[in-house]
Design a protein around this nucleic acid. Sequence first.
DNA 1: GTCTTTATTTAGGTAAGGCTAAATTAGTTT
DNA 2: AAACTAATTTAGCCTTACCTAAATAAAGAC
Lengths: 222, 222
Amino acid sequence: MKKKLSHASEDYLKAIYTLSADGFSASTNNLAAHLNIAPASVTGMLQRLASLSPPLVNYRKRHGATLTDTGEKAALKVIRRHRLLETYLHKSLGFSWDEVHAEACELEHAVSDRFEARIDEVLGHPTHDPHGDPIPNLGLVMPQEADIRLSTLRPPQKAIIQRVDAEDGKLLRYLEEKSLLPGTKLEIRAFSPIDGNLTIAVDGKKMVLGSAVTCHIFIEEI
Amino acid sequence: MKKKLSHASEDYLKAIYTLSADGFSASTNNLAAHLNIAPASVTGMLQRLASLSPPLVNYRKRHGATLTDTGEKAALKVIRRHRLLETYLHKSLGFSWDEVHAEACELEHAVSDRFEARIDEVLGHPTHDPHGDPIPNLGLVMPQEADIRLSTLRPPQKAIIQRVDAEDGKLLRYLEEKSLLPGTKLEIRAFSPIDGNLTIAVDGKKMVLGSAVTCHIFIEEI
DNA sequence: GTCTTTATTTAGGTAAGGCTAAATTAGTTT
DNA sequence: AAACTAATTTAGCCTTACCTAAATAAAGAC
């Protein structure tokens, strides 16, 4: 009978998961910035998460934290719920692309396993959320196959958008309006070495994108 | 920019709303029992809720609490969310009748206005939840038109079930199985003065119900 | 009118999860 | 090596929301 984790703990686990690449710990400062919390508070929480039994994080003083196996399982469960919820909110409730994140951030701490299973079923067991991020399942995450940034392409390459990594509502609304969404095919038409702008074509429509945009779009070359 | 109420406060408001009939306050002890919390803790919370600005409850030492206008508005908003969620979980996600309450109790504190509005729309602006309770709207609750208990009927009266007031999962599953749900028509066939059992017919099927069941079913005579 | 019961409140304590300010450590410079 | 800097931790404090045990008040019994 594992006790339910607190809202806050779950947020920390998510953050540690995303900020710690394989082998490398998430630093106190990075976590603090990511969670919008003072560094001192993060230290306190890491100590608490490490002192649980079983511990959820491996914490070494002044060396940041990684997740234990238990912690990673818990983190993936929260991330799964988050991404399933984003997908559900978008596809089944008509939330716009830029609204889903905030709502999912709240709901992910409240939904039951039953709820999770039901929306998974209703959605037909989706593998990716509306941003193109993989939805973990049974503790497994698909490897991020597409890690090429749109900004690195040059004419006349072609690509298909796999994933959009942005939080900012304005940017998301812009991208949605231009249908720069996962799945969209595009061709590079021109590159300006002066400002880094790319001119691309989507469905024949041309548009010029600055690097503030192209850095956030991950593509697969075709 | 009204600050979001805490999970706990919202639960207190709901409880005070349901435990205080018009004019009458909800007592510390009743609240404690209803919320599964020690009476002393309730006192503390009532004092806090009364000392907010604007206050959410009218609290008189040793006389329990009622809701202020602000408090009642907040309570109705939570109750609305709860009942809309129950309806949504039941109708759109296939949750069984006895599962919806627990899930809604968690979700009601997490969903946004946007979410509330969307499920309301998807459901076609329902007026009653799966238990037959009215869904408040814009701060208004429909009066409980049906307040006759099934246990008070005698043969050969006929009635239609309006509302079922039960929390117990076993009872709810039993009722669902026998389709004793809001909307169901029934006829009283016999009454046993010894044990208070009623024999009723639903769709021609006869069944015998003890008062543990019939007390929780509110009907409208036809 | 005093006694007893029951409801309620006060007092004091705990655990989470935040904060700021001050101390410490590690890493770079000079 | 001494000094500066950036990252981190400690110390001390706050709020919320719960707890238990002891004090008090109100209500009914005798």
